[in-house]
Write a protein that binds this DNA or RNA. Structure first.
Length: 328
DNA sequence: GGTAGACCTGGACGC
DNA sequence: GCGTCCAGGTCTACC
């Protein structure tokens, strides 16, 4: 028997806009259905895995998904309507709500997004500001490692295989489970290549508490300490560290990669070596200060959307597998 | 501190 | 169908 529960959201929240705001929404175990505009994924809860479907009913009570209008700037956020595929205990509802809140960045209220739009008004029209992430820091870190040194389609495959081969009931594997996996299994069956040992090692560090998510998520932890710590982890270099930082809500650093160079050359008209262009991009976005990554990312996102339509219309199995700009 | 080359996979290309 | 080349970020060895 399913359990229905609601999650309150900030007044400007739009599920389709704010969930489909970063590539991870296209990675397993996440599944966005563009037709029903619902997000479904398996969550590992106290009583075992449960498939949760999240929707945002229209505020006006009419049938069909909520609409986003450029003219009105925001849809007024109706509470999220969630349903599980099995009965959940009260504690599990609380647990699931917390994980969903992390994933959908419900902690960033309307005032936070307004503060960003004061710095960069270009994205005020659609109300963009929140960036989708995973329910746990562990999943964010592993997803980041699977995105290094590969084209996007390989990242899609790695996450698909990790969930199928190691995860319980299609869930993203827990740190404990992944730390017990054989590196050779990850390489052969999950196609993670040379990342195999690094992933097992990272999982072991999370499982043992050597990596403490609370310390990483704590606003009292300085940016400098956090970056130094992250960059010391296996498989995490300057790009991955900056990406994990933005996933932790620290937007001042830019994870610069070949996509950034392409953006610098084709959109911003920069010229020079890749290294020189990366420096120019850093300088270009520096005026956005603590919000630099948001501005950088939504520029890139706009480029993808101009090619492939609004992100909430992308299918995981088609557009979602080819959306890296180099594929256009 | 800076740089070259290895790491692995999948796709593109030529034969 | 097979072999070769290339792209991608991190890591290590070396200067």
């Amino acid at each position: 028997m399913p359990t229905h529960f609601a999650i309150p959201v900030p007044e400007d929240y739009s599920l389709k806009r704010d969930a489909c705001s970063y590539g991870y929404f296209l990675l397993r175990p996440n599944h966005w259905d563009p037709r029903s505009e619902r997000l479904t994924r398996v969550l590992e809860l106290e009583g075992g895995p449960a498939t949760i479907t999240i929707a945002q009913p229209r505020e006006d009570g009419k049938r069909g998904p909520a609409r986003i209008s450029k003219a009105s700037h925001f849809t007024r956020g109706a509470d999220l309507a969630c349903v599980s595929d099995r009965r959940l205990a009260r504690r599990e509802v609380t647990e699931a709500s917390g994980l969903i809140a992390r994933m959908l960045r419900l902690d960033e209220d309307a005032a936070t997004i307004r503060a960003y739009h004061r710095v960069d008004p270009r994205f005020k029209g659609l109300g963009r500001g929140r960036l989708f992430r995973s329910p746990t820091l562990f999943e964010d870190v592993i997803k980041t490692v699977t995105s290094c040194n590969v084209q996007w389609p390989s990242t899609v495959v790695m996450n698909e295989r990790l969930c199928e081969v190691v995860g319980d009931g299609g869930a993203f594997p827990s740190a404990r489970k992944l730390s017990r996996a054989r590196a050779s299994t990850l390489r052969a069956r999950c196609r993670v290549g040379y990342r195999d040992k690094r992933i097992v090692e990272l999982a072991g560090m999370f499982a043992s508490g050597e990596i403490d998510p609370h310390w990483c998520e704590d606003p009292a932890t300085s940016d400098e300490d956090l970056r130094t710590f992250l960059i010391g982890l296996p498989g995490i270099g300057p790009y991955a560290a900056a990406n994990v930082m933005q996933l932790l809500g620290r937007y001042h650093l830019l994870p610069l990669d070949t996509e950034s160079v392409r953006h610098g050359k084709t959109i911003l008209g920069m010229e020079g070596t890749d290294k020189a262009i990366m420096k120019m991009i850093d300088k270009h976005f520096a005026p956005f200060g603590a919000h630099a990554f948001r501005s950088y990312w939504f520029e890139l996102w706009e480029f993808y959307e101009n090619k492939r339509g609004p992100s909430w219309t992308w299918e995981r199995e088609t557009t979602g597998k080819t959306f890296t700009a180099s594929q256009f």
